[in-house]
Design a protein around this nucleic acid. Structure first.
Lengths: 218, 218
DNA sequence: GTTCGCTTGTGAAATGATTCACAAGCTACC
DNA sequence: GGTAGCTTGTGAATCATTTCACAAGCGAAC
């Protein structure tokens, strides 16, 4: 399979198509057209076809795409034919919610370890996963062959934890702390920030309000 | 102030600059250059200047930007000079974690109501906020003048809840359910999906592994 | 007041992503 | 076999975003 450079947004769309295809497969649907995928993913049929054609041609002209085969193909492209070993650092409210989030393991991400510095959290079990002291992180990450780290610490410690994860040989990081982390050792980092998203919505609301006022007044 | 059409990614960057500026203000820093903002936000100085110049010219050549004044300006542009009234639908693990997340109110998003359908959750107080039955949503949203809705329900009910929020007159929606929602009544929707982000990382890891193998073998 | 070092603001160029539009190809049906 | 109706795959064109590059401007030092 060819592996072109591909944008983040394209990868996200592919992951979305895969989710839709799995649903369709569950419903016993065998064929799906780019138009249908587009409708369900909020995209356009041309976009869907372009995205898929980056990796090869999987469809049949006049018919569409074979749901089952395309799902398998996308699983392969995205590396989801296997499951990934994940650890969590920071067992606060968000961290604990993630440990209890069943979709993670169901969709191929198994949380195999959790860490925190708070002495009263260390030793607890949260949703069946023991919380260990941060000092054990390097050893445990190596021993358990953890591949992805999730940071859910306060922002002050996030950068330090990222460094620690990178040094321990982790391959990628998902960050929930509201700070922009600087990449260490080419370990890719994605940040999810609720407040930043809300602020984006705030901009839209403020703009809408002004436009409204402007047009009403004049 | 001019209000040009501006991309989502630009808005996100502006929100990020604002966060950095508030930090700097707290530290008593008075001037900051586009280069410094770029370093701290993982961007480039040209990008920072372009973003800011969309709304006017706020800097002094040779000196940089006045931290305090620029923070105020960005707060105005983003609509963050005031705080917003938010409600939460779905008090599961993620929902409960959000209710306890202090940064929301600290950064101008006040959760004034929470809803759920589960009879054993309705009537509870979670972090001081009473959980009401979903049937009260339209009335409460109107009475409390709620402007932003957060959906943290299972994916099956998310679309229905989105419609309900839109009908109740809400202005924007942040969705945590792993489904692509179709927009109702021009109410903007942002979706945050942990698994989708992890799948994006999975793609990078899988690609890195293949490249590695390819180059090692040859 | 002149020079020097630094930084902004911004057109122009380059790069990247999306949309268009259509030939090529498949299936069903007659 | 031929035709009709769809749908894919993809170059070309359009649209959007980012980067480049530099004139203009500010302040400090002498």
């Amino acid at each position: 399979m060819t592996r072109p450079r591909i944008s983040d947004s394209a990868v996200r769309r592919l992951a979305l198509y895969l989710r839709l295809l799995r649903d369709l497969r569950g419903q016993g649907v065998e064929l799906v057209s780019s138009r249908e995928l587009a409708e369900r993913s909020g995209s356009t049929s041309a976009q869907v076809r372009k995205d898929l054609s980056l990796f090869g041609s999987f469809g049949k002209r006049g018919r569409g795409y074979a749901v089952d085969a395309l799902a398998d193909t996308l699983e392969n492209i995205l590396g989801l034919e296997r499951s990934w070993r994940v650890c969590l650092v920071g067992v606060g409210k968000i961290g604990a919610a993630l440990l209890g989030y069943r979709d993670l393991v169901r969709r191929g991400f198994e949380v195999v370890a959790a860490f925190d510095t708070e002495p009263n959290k260390v030793g607890m079990q949260v949703f069946g996963i023991p919380v260990r002291p941060l000092s054990e992180l390097p050893r445990v990450v190596r021993r358990e062959r953890v591949e992805i780290g999730i940071i859910a610490t306060p922002p002050e410690s996030a950068q330090e934890v990222a460094k620690c994860l990178a040094d321990a040989g982790i391959g990628a990081i998902l960050n929930f702390a509201p700070v922009e982390l600087t990449e260490t050792d080419h370990v890719p980092i994605r940040t999810m920030d609720v407040v930043l998203e809300l602020e984006g919505l705030s901009y839209l609301l403020a703009t809408a309000a002004r436009t409204e006022r402007g047009s009403t007044t004049s």
